[in-house]
């Protein structure tokens, strides 16, 4: 028994080492490339530890030009998308929590959304957005609307599992006291799921912020961050690509640290 236990402990240590390495090495190399002069990034054999540091690339991202424009566009698209997904997800989550038929219907629709191949929707959508005049606009409205739909399943499920825990007796009591259905929802139910609403907003924001495929196809010249990182990576501007990637990882880190409990609970579907 003790040998078995010791083996388990060893395996767990090996596992944690593996997980941490697999996660930390990419982040470290990225940071290194973003903060060292390009000559060191192109050196052969590769430089593992920086010899000198520079803030040129990070400054470029924040200061002006293409990088900054794309940063602002990404933020605008992600906020719009997160608003749409949170509002609609709250509505759908509530309907699904209160009615079994709505639950079955909603689950099918959300599952279908989750399984959709990006390319099959994005190409015709580009044609549709051209007709509507929303294709590749500087404000990225068309892309934001797609991202909202893309983030809807996660937001709706998060809200659904929060609403389901509120006892229906509360609602019935409020109804007997003469409250209207809308005010029951707004004043009784909504305040109780504030945490889940915030979680849904952050999760949707991250879905949009990280999304690559639709952004590549629908915003070919007014690029959000992921396609721009792709272009810089593939067409060889190591410093700028890494700095951009680093900057784009910052909001993700902040959001995750701030809302870790809510997100984890929603993720595992328990609690």
């Amino acid at each position: 028994m003790t040998i078995e236990n010791r083996l388990l402990v060893f395996c767990r240590k090996a596992l944690s080492a593996f997980v941490v390495t697999a996660g930390v090495i990419p982040l470290y190399l990225l940071t290194k490339q973003a903060l060292t002069p390009e000559l060191q990034s192109f050196a052969w054999p590769p430089v593992w530890f920086p010899k000198s540091l520079t803030l040129t690339y990070v400054k470029d991202v924040i200061a002006s030009g293409e990088l900054r424009t794309s940063l602002i566009l990404s933020a605008r698209v992600a906020i719009t998308a997160a608003l749409a997904a949170t509002v609609l997800g709250t509505m759908l989550g509530y309907a699904m929590a209160r009615h079994t038929r709505a639950r079955a219907l909603g689950l099918s629709a959300l599952t279908a959304t989750r399984l959709l191949p990006m390319i099959a929707a994005a190409m015709p959508l580009a044609t549709i957005l051209i007709t509507l005049g929303l294709y590749d606009t500087p404000g990225g409205v068309g892309l934001a609307l797609v991202h909202g739909a893309l983030a809807l399943p996660a937001a709706a499920i998060l809200l659904f599992s929060a609403f389901v825990k509120i006892p229906i007796e509360l609602e019935q009591a409020a109804y007997l006291d003469g409250a209207s259905p809308l005010s029951i929802f707004l004043r009784l139910n909504l305040p109780q799921v504030r945490g889940a609403v915030a979680g849904a907003f952050v999760l949707s924001f991250l879905v949009s912020w990280d999304e690559f495929g639709f952004a590549l196809l629908l915003q070919p010249t007014n690029r959000t961050l992921p396609p721009l990182i792709y272009y810089y990576t593939v067409f060889g501007d190591t410093g700028a690509a890494s700095a951009l990637a680093l900057v784009s990882a910052v909001p993700v880190l902040i959001a995750l640290v701030a809302l870790r409990p809510v997100l984890l609970r929603g993720l595992s579907g328990r609690g």
Binding site: L30, L206, F212, P226, I229, A245, L246, S248, A249, L253
Partner: peptide
């Protein structure tokens, strides 16, 4: 999540 897909 920590590392956005494209960054990774």
């Amino acid at each position: 999540f920590l590392i956005p897909e494209i960054v990774f």
